[in-house]
Design a protein around this nucleic acid. Structure first.
Lengths: 137, 137
DNA sequence: TGCATTTCTTAGAATTATTCTAAACTGCTT
DNA sequence: AAGCAGTTTAGAATAATTCTAAGAAATGCA
């Protein structure tokens, strides 16, 4: 047992998502999905990745984030102009956004109810409802 | 009555907001606030403004939008990465965002209730709750 | 296993959105 | 009318992201 094979989980996970498990994708997946849920930007993930043995170019980080998002492994959260956050928590939940220090926190949507939303525009279908609670210190 | 004086309303409005009513600010204010509520981006407003007699530089459009927002005349809505929308409706309301064609529609918040939001993070205070209903065609 | 095919990765250029800079200009007060 | 502070402007600068072309690396198959 033990640390015989290093990361079959991530490789499998990527393959299931239709992505070839390349070194850099697996390395990024490990950084992203190993521990608790987290929020990253391309820059922040790139910085972390550089600390890894496998170095990854910024372009690849962007590619991977977009692919992971398209594959449903990540969720993109748009809260501040000019910066994209990616959330490893793809389940139903909403966000607190601390405007004073650009920090994002999840909260489960279980308890949250949004009522009274009118019918969507003609010919459209709801894909998701985002609730962003903006707070400041 | 009639078209005797062209835009005292906008000048007054700007002055009340602590902004000097310059030609370009008044011209932009007219475009923004004359008719119904609307959503603009810096680019779209600039394009419209060029159609006016008073031509305005893009930098000024950015300046004005930011100042108008800071003065509470506009509200900034963040829905898509890499693009800022400004909403002339500063009252309580929420948005439909048509992802397939980057279109934004307001809906009043009167009827909408968001319940079950947990207490905000330690030491923070809620400044606003945004509900964004993402739809696609 | 060995090679061909296809898909990735990468550095750097290119693009897009936005802000900055320094000089010219304008609205307001006197 | 003159002066000054606040504005506008063109173009440079910055920041975030995407594109490009060429070299790797993963996969499929003989």
């Amino acid at each position: 047992m033990s640390s015989a094979n290093p990361d079959p989980d991530f490789a499998v996970r990527l393959r299931k998502a239709g992505l070839r498990p390349t070194r850099q994708r697996v390395a990024l997946a490990r950084v992203l999905f190993e521990g608790d849920h987290r929020h990253v930007t391309a820059e922040s993930l790139h910085a972390e990745a550089k600390a890894t043995k496998i170095s990854v170019s910024l372009a690849t980080v962007y590619n991977a984030l977009n692919q992971f998002r398209d594959a449903g492994l990540l969720r993109e959260v748009v809260v501040a102009p000019g910066r994209s956050y990616f959330d490893t928590n793809t389940g139903h939940h909403h966000h607190f956004f601390v405007e004073t220090d650009n920090e994002l926190h999840d909260f489960p949507s279980d308890a949250v109810t949004v009522e009274g939303v009118p019918a969507p525009p003609e010919g459209t279908k709801v894909s998701r409802v985002d609730v962003i609670v903006r707070v400041r210190r």
